[in-house]
Design a protein around this nucleic acid. Structure first.
Lengths: 240, 240
DNA sequence: CGGATGTTTCGGCCGGCGCCGAACTGTCGG
DNA sequence: CCGACAGTTCGGCGCCGGCCGAAACATCCG
């Protein structure tokens, strides 16, 4: 696009979008942003392993193509994924990249925390998220298929007690998608409902975000609260 | 990857995959293959607008990266998308590329046939597919959300009469995803069930594939059969 | 077997883009 | 104000990779 022109129609082609994601440095930044938090340019530079100048160029291009959104805050610039569509595209690419019926290669124990509980864009993932999903299904609050979930009548009431008004969520995004993540090959709760759940749980301090990572830290009091609220089985950590 | 090495672990990175899709010529080939039919190298060359030599190189790379699968047949080589994951990734990229809450720009009337009925990877799309989905929901055979669908008890029986055994489909892929396509912004039936439906309908000659295009041609007898089988309303063509 | 057609391999050209060093802009602190 | 820090812009280097022409290989057909 010639200098000075503005991408008025937001008319990207599929190749332009994919080509933006198709660079190691940019892909690393996007993967880091899949944690759901907005990150500064500097943090993204470290994630990508390139200098700040280079990063700045990448971020500008991705922002112009509407892959990222930026918010100025003092001398920092916070970048985040521009939309759930972008997150989903990256997710789909991850699924292709890891190679279909991937053999579960043993990952180092250092991401044990990640396997236990982490964010995935705007919702929870990891064993905790699976345990929550399982318990909700067991108690008849949710029906899950491979790609989505339905909230039942009883679920409507249950989520209401958590302060989540299911009816008001149906607005723009899918209510309850499921999301197959890399560590466990089973679906967990994403979509609007997944985002709302993460919100509530963070709000109540049951989980806290780890700095500079997608990991979620389970507080001591949080664990018992979660077990009680969702009626998790005592052995939920081993529910692989 | 150095020459002579084999990609044993199928360990692609997200950037490698995206970078393969992120070339105009290759993206055009992939888009053509989203129609679900296997195409020859020559046909793909024409779709991409490059010479056969260039095409050959592209196809080799995409095949090695497991984006495509190839089948020799005489002096032709038929290429198809290697998996539903690949189709979904391309689909997700299309959603990002067309720019979120895209304004419905009026497309030329020449793809009126496409808007009426076409294939989308392995299932039907277009107004006909919407009418079918609507009718199935109306009759209580299916419950649709934004991302997936559930077959009801009555639906199990209904699909049985079409020769589709719902229970046997649940094998590997999602039973019934929904798929938001570009022409109408509403979900239609994809996944295993969508593929099975397209199969049956082609098998019975209600629709026929147009050569070299994703369009599906509605035969005269096929229309009345479809209307009868799915109890489509008389004005289904205008169900935008 | 020889010619036509589909596809691949090889070699070389060339443009685009990712990278960094250096220098500039903007913001916060004292 | 003036340094420190975050981020961007500019310029130039280097290389990867897409493109095609020429030629080889493969397959079908008469």
């Amino acid at each position: 696009m010639p200098a000075g022109m503005v991408n008025i129609a937001s008319g990207n082609t599929i190749a332009e979008v994919a080509s933006l994601i198709g660079d190691a440095a940019r892909a690393n930044m996007l993967a880091a942003l899949m944690g759901g938090q907005a990150l500064t340019a500097g943090e993204l530079a470290r994630h990508a392993g390139v200098t700040p100048q280079t990063t700045s160029g990448h971020l500008a291009r991705m922002t112009e193509a509407r892959l990222l959104a930026v918010e100025k805050q003092g001398r920092h610039r916070y970048y985040r994924l521009a939309s759930a569509e972008v997150a989903q595209a990256i997710h789909a690419l991850m699924a292709v990249a890891s190679g279909g019926p991937k053999r579960h290669r043993p990952v180092g124990p250092k991401d044990e925390a990640l396997r236990l509980a982490r964010t995935c864009y705007d919702h929870m993932a990891g064993r905790l998220a699976l345990a929550v999903a399982d318990a909700l299904v067991r108690d008849g609050h949710l029906v899950l298929s491979d790609e989505a979930g339905f909230v039942t009548e009883s679920g409507r009431g249950f989520f209401g007690t958590l302060g989540i008004d299911v009816a008001s969520l149906r607005a723009r995004r899918p209510l309850c998608r499921t999301c197959l993540d890399w560590s466990e090959r089973r679906p967990h709760i994403a979509g609007q409902l997944g985002a709302a759940l993460l919100d509530r749980v963070l709000e109540r301090g049951w989980l806290t975000r780890a700095p500079e990572s997608r990991a979620l830290h389970l507080t001591r009091a949080g664990e018992s609260s979660l077990v009680a609220a969702f009626r998790l089985p005592p052995d939920w950590r081993g529910t692989t």
